[in-house]
Computed example of a mutant assay.
Amino acid sequence: MTTNQSGERQDILDFLAKHRSFLRHTAQGLTDEQANTRSTVSELTVGGLIKHVSTVEQHWAEFAQGNGQSTPGATEYTPEVIAAWQDQFRLVEGETLAGVLAEYEKVAAATDELVRTLDLDAAYELPAAPWQPPGVFWTVRRVFLHITAETAQHAGHADILRESIDGQKTMG
């Protein structure tokens, strides 16, 4: 069996769409207050997870275009850097669930266009990080698979949070 590029690209798009749908479903019908509720012992919130997934997807999409090296990592973990990291997992002043969902839709549409157009075999070196040895390259294909895995993982987290808020489940 021969895999053609358009089939592979469609598979990636379908897989992304499925897990994005699960994530968005967890927010359906929530108020901003509920979307920002810590419903378990975790610091995570449904709205914050959607915001985080959107930010991470955008970062990886930039990497897939060869722009990953221009995003410097924090070299010093100051209280401000830690606070900014924590704020990506919750809605902060002025943010709404509708706003983070709208931003997520824009990011998703941009990523989908990259799935359709980028060379899936192009590879870029991962940025330096304490957990990453130098010289590791990821293909664009792997980046899109990683975005999907991140989305699926966080959709599961959001599902648990949502069930703790009002009993709604994505599946079952």
Rank of each mutant, 00 (worst) to 15 (best):
R116S: 03
Q69K: 12
K51R: 14
D32T: 04
A109R: 10
L118V: 04
A84E: 15
T170H: 07
T3P: 04
T71D: 10
V136H: 12
N67T: 06
Q34M: 07
F137E: 09
E93W: 05
G48Y: 01
R20T: 05
S21N: 13
I165K: 03
G99D: 01
E163F: 05
T31M: 06
L118D: 01
T117C: 05
Q34D: 06
Q86H: 12
A108P: 01
G94A: 04
Q132V: 13
W138T: 08
A74F: 09
P130R: 14
T96I: 08
D119M: 09
E95M: 02
H25F: 07
H25Y: 05
T26Q: 02
A149K: 11
S21P: 00
E43R: 10
D11Q: 14
E80M: 06
E125K: 09
G7Q: 14
L97C: 05
A123H: 04
S42I: 01
A109D: 08
I12G: 06
T55F: 03
S42H: 07
L49R: 03
W138L: 15
G135P: 02
L16A: 13
L114C: 10
W85C: 08
Q86M: 09
V107G: 01
G167D: 09
R38Y: 03
E105F: 01
L97E: 02
A129F: 14
E113D: 12
F15E: 05
A83R: 15
G29K: 03
D119V: 08
L49V: 14
Q58E: 14
T2V: 11
G94H: 08
Q69S: 13
V56C: 12
G94C: 08
R116H: 03
V53P: 02
A155D: 03
W138D: 06
G7F: 03
A109T: 10
R142Q: 13
D14T: 11
E33N: 03
L44S: 06
M1H: 12
A122G: 04
I165P: 00
H19Q: 09
T2Y: 03
A129R: 10
K51T: 06
N4T: 15
F63H: 15
P133Y: 06
A84G: 11
Q65K: 15
A149N: 13
I165C: 03
E163A: 12
P134F: 03
T111R: 11
L161N: 08
D112R: 11
V46H: 00
K106L: 12
A27C: 11
F144V: 11
A17H: 09
D121K: 13
E103Q: 09
D119Y: 08
G99L: 00
E43I: 08
P79I: 12
L120Y: 09
V81D: 06
A102P: 00
V56R: 02
Q34L: 07
I12M: 10
E150M: 10
A17V: 00
D87V: 02
E62R: 14
E150A: 09
Q88S: 13
L118P: 00
L44D: 00
K106G: 11
V136W: 11
K106M: 10
L49A: 04
S21G: 14
D112P: 01
A64R: 04
D11K: 14
D119W: 07
A109L: 10
H157T: 09
Q69G: 14
T26D: 00
Q132A: 10
L114R: 13
Q88D: 11
K169L: 15
M171S: 15
T75E: 13
D121H: 08
T31K: 06
F89K: 01
